[in-house]
Simulated assay, not measured.
Amino acid sequence: MATDNRGRKLPKGIRQRSKDGFEGRFTYQHKTYTVHGETVTKTQKAMTELKYKLEHGIYADKKKITLNDWFTTWMEEYKKNQVKTGTYTNYQNYYNFAIKERMGSNLISDIRGEHIQKLYNDLVDNEYTLSSIKLVKAILNGCLKQAMRNGLIERNPVPLATLPRQKEKKERQAMTKEQQTLFMEYAKDSYLYNLFAVMLRTGMRIGEITGLKYTDIDKRKNVIHIQRTLLYINNEGYMECDPKTKTSNRDIPLTAALCELLENQRKFWGFKVERIDRYLFCTEKGEPLGRQRVQYEIDRITKQITAAGHDFPRITAHVFRHTFATRAIEAGMQPQVLKTILGHSSLTMTMDLYSHVLPDTKADEMEKIANVF
C-alpha cells in the first residue's frame, strides 16, 4: 500500500506525486484512467465522479472532443433552459453558418488564439458585419469558458484574439414619402395590404405583427398590446416567444386609421379571428404567416413597380419599421415617445435614428430661426 511523504498509508489506487498533490489511478473495462487532486479527499472524489461517468456512458475523453461535440453538449445542457427560444435558435444558426465548417472539427484542446483570429478574419473577408462577429465571439467565449470550468481545456483561447476594426455603418434604409406612396398604391391588390399599412403606422417588427392576435387589440384602453413575437424554428414549426427585450413588451396607441385597418383585416378572409389561437395576419387557411412569404410579396410588388418604369430599391420588411421612425421624426415626435413606441431598449438606439434623419431637415430648421437675429 502506498504512503504519503509523511509515511501515512493512502487509500487503494492513490499515490502522492513527487512535487504536489495526489494521483488516483483505476482500471475500467481493461483501460487505465488517472485523475489528480490537491488532497486525498479531492482525489477520491474525482475518482468517484469519473467512475460514475464511465459506468453511465457520459464520459468523454477531453483529448478527443471536437468543438462540434462540445457545442452540442453546451447548448443542450447549459443554454437550453437558460435563454429564450429565439436566442437559442440564433446561437444555433450562427454556429452552423459562421463557425461549424471553419473550425467545428478541431479538437477543443487544440484550439489556440490564432485559430480564433483566423476565424474573425475569414468572416470579415466574407462581409460579416462587426455585430455578427461579436455574436460569434460571444458564442465561442461562452462555450469554451464552460469547457475550461469543466476541466476539458486548460485555457480559454477566445480573449487572445482581437475583433476587427469597426467598418463604416451602412446607412439605414427607409422609404421616401414618394416611395412609400408608390408602394402602397401598387400594394392595393395584395392580400398583405393591411399588414403593410399597419407596419407603416406602428413600426412593429415583422415577428410582432405576424404574432398579433385580435385579442391584443384593446379598444377599451385604445391601444395595441405587443406581447409576443412569432418565430419559425427549423424542424419544429412556428413558436410564440417573448418580445425581443423587456421594453419590446409595450402598448402602441390606436388611431382611427389603425382601427379601420385592423377591422378590415379581421373580416378579410371571412373567418372569425377572435379565436384565442388565431393570428390576425395569416394565410388564407388561417395558418401563421412566415417572414419568407411576406418578403416574397414585397418583392412581387416592387417588381411590378420597376416593370412600370419606376426606379425603386429592393426593400425588406424591416424597412417599414425604419420608414415609420423616419416619418415620426420628420413630424416632430419626441425621442422618448418614439423610443417607447418602437420598443427600443435604450434611448441611444432611438437617437441613432435621429442622427440619420435630422441632417435632411437641418436646412429647414435653420430657416425657422433666420429672422431671430
Rank of each mutant, 00 (worst) to 15 (best):
L289M: 12
C259L: 15
P313D: 11
A307P: 02
T326G: 02
R266P: 00
A307D: 15
W269M: 08
D352Y: 00
L342P: 04
G286A: 11
T350C: 08
Q295M: 14
R275Y: 13
H318P: 12
T350R: 05
L358C: 03
Q334T: 01
R266G: 01
E330Q: 14
R314Y: 12
D277V: 00
V294P: 05
Q265M: 07
L338F: 04
Q336S: 07
F320S: 09
L280T: 03
Q304A: 05
V337T: 15
G270S: 11
H356G: 03
G332P: 10
F268S: 07
S248M: 06
E274Y: 05
K303P: 00
L262N: 13
Q265I: 09
M333K: 01
S345A: 15
H318D: 09
L353M: 12
R293G: 06
R266L: 12
L342E: 02
R293P: 00
Q334I: 06
K303T: 12
L258H: 12
P313E: 08
T247V: 02
V273Y: 02
E284G: 07
I305W: 01
D251F: 03
D277T: 13
A256Y: 09
T302W: 04
A307C: 03
P335Q: 09
G290K: 08
L254C: 06
L262S: 09
E287N: 14
Q334L: 02
L358E: 05
R266S: 13
V337M: 04
E260A: 10
S355R: 14
S248K: 13
M333Y: 03
V357Q: 01
P253C: 08
S346P: 06
R314T: 12
T323K: 00
V273D: 08
C259P: 00
M351D: 02
E287I: 00
L261S: 06
M351I: 07
